[in-house]
Design a protein around this nucleic acid. Structure first.
Lengths: 147, 147
DNA sequence: AGCGAACTGTTCGTACTGCGAATCAAAATA
DNA sequence: TATTTTGATTCGCAGTACGAACAGTTCGCT
């Protein structure tokens, strides 16, 4: 029963550690801007325009009750705002304020810079390999999740 | 100054999303065993034998005061125990109880299974590409961190 | 030996995170 | 229209994480 392990010796461990590195970057950058990691993640998701609560919950992997609180705190800091949806008077879409956009760009840029700085050491072949493998994994996990 | 962005279109995004997938797996598996993600991470770190608080804080990226609480809760559940160090009466080493070992193996196995199940869909070239890229990134980040 | 600096871990107060159950209003469906 | 479903909030609870202040221990230096 060690065959699977033999064929991927420590590969999973490496993935976990990589995730940890990314997480660390996110945490550090967020902190530098007086944000919590979750708040930073939220802002980055909102940077392309307003998003509904449903989408947000799915993308952040949060229960709706958790999301309400997160939005509350971000709204209280004047970084985002709830905009009621015209078609459905229950629903609301979350959009960034001016200050929110500024912070979102700053944190997104900070994270990108630091990760690109790491990725810069990869040679083009490794870059491509990483890209294609990650894309495949993501497609895979997205396909598996809706279960 | 958009050159760097042009040369890595979305590559960083892929990394972030990959981290998110790994995180999700960890959260799900932990929950299945009545653990929080952080508690699961802790158990996995302790599986190779007792570790001192200093090391733990560094590896989990936690402040010591945060670590105290985490250990408290895990100890209260009977999964780990503080063992005082013989050489330094201030220090203590955290070790797993029998039940802790059991849970640690279960969660570690669960995470590994699910990630390997994902990775199994990659063809060998992608696997190798991912491996080498991730190893490189980890080496890079470890070299950069001690700053 | 003795004194002070550095280190290890805890306590305390505070804010944030995240969940599930219960609730309410607004759709959607029968 | 009556019923069900859906979108979001509220509440209570446990866990997470930080920094400052603290106590005991060890270390370095004289």
């Amino acid at each position: 029963m060690a065959e699977a392990t033999r064929s991927e010796p420590g590969g999973v461990e490496a993935l976990v550690r990589l995730a940890h590195v990314v997480d660390r970057v996110f945490t550090d950058v967020a902190r530098r801007h007086e944000l919590t990691p979750q708040q930073a993640r939220l802002l980055c998701l909102l940077v392309d325009g307003p998003v509904g609560m449903g989408d947000l919950g799915r993308r952040l992997n949060l229960e709706k009750s958790s999301l309400t609180g997160l939005i509350d705190r971000v709204e209280r800091r004047g970084l985002a705002a709830r905009n009621r949806d015209g078609h459905d008077r229950r629903a609301c879409r979350i959009g960034l304020t001016e200050e929110g956009v500024r912070l979102a760009h700053e944190t997104h840029g900070g994270v990108t810079d630091r990760l690109e700085h790491l990725a810069a050491e990869l040679d083009p072949a490794q870059r491509d390999g990483l890209r294609s493998a990650v894309d495949r994994l993501l497609a895979e996990s997205e396909a598996a999740e809706p279960s």
